[in-house]
Amino acid sequence: MAAIQALDVPAATPKGQRVPLDRRLLVGGVGLAIIVLAALAAPLIAPFNPIEQHLDARLQGPSGTYLLGTDNLGRDTLSRLLYGLRPSLISGLAAVALAAVSGTVVGMLAGYFGRWADAVLSRLLDLLIAWPTIFLALALVLVIGPGQFGVVLAIALAELPIFARVMRAITLSNVRGEHVEAARSMGASAPRIMVRHIFPFALSPLLVQFAIAAPLAVVAEASLGYLGLGTQPPAPSLGGILSDAELYLSQTYSAAVFPILTIALLVLSLTLIADGLQKMLDPRGAPVGL
């Protein structure tokens, strides 16, 4: 039988095959699990009290006693890092969760009601995007005073547009659909249509956005901590430890390098999770990266 050669195009991925667990998701998940466990177990595994000063052992490099060295006040860097992870993780997560919830609501309202509601909300989102996170945080600190609450609020406001835009697009593509019109024809209320007939279609894209926003939040939290806007001394935070160490870089590298490595590991894990999730939930899309 003569083959029609020109037709022998390489076969595409067969349909119906289950998408295997993405390797990036696995590696990122393990990385994040280790970090979260370490933060949770800090009271158990930290060798010292994170604010206890050992003035006889200032600015030391890694040693048997101080595994990752000490800072200018002789505080154990490992202990400070373990405890410092907690506010970073909590602020990051809280900020992203707040951004996700409020962004979803804003996006859904803008997309569903359209017209002036959409015009007003979309311009407000533009305003948030135009304003750098740092300035936003500085402004909030001026108003409500320094502390974690201001940082969380600032990061949440900065990341709100990410969620709002995705939700608005998905709402727009569904709101004119026949299944929504069918719900209207039954007399379904606007909240019911939004919750039952639009939101379920946004779940997986929102999850991907959540994974993208999380590492950004961690970086933002560390930057704000570095500027002294977040957790107030002497309590440790990743940004704060780095900021303390910076002045003494000429005397010891370890107090600065290890917080940087910790932040990098955390961001890398979260990014890998985001890429993996995106690949699994939307196999056609390109990896998101950072």
Partner: peptide, 9 residues
């Protein structure tokens, strides 16, 4: 379309 193969005598 891609992914298909066609033959004919």
């Amino acid at each position: 379309p891609g992914g298909s193969s066609a033959t004919a005598d």
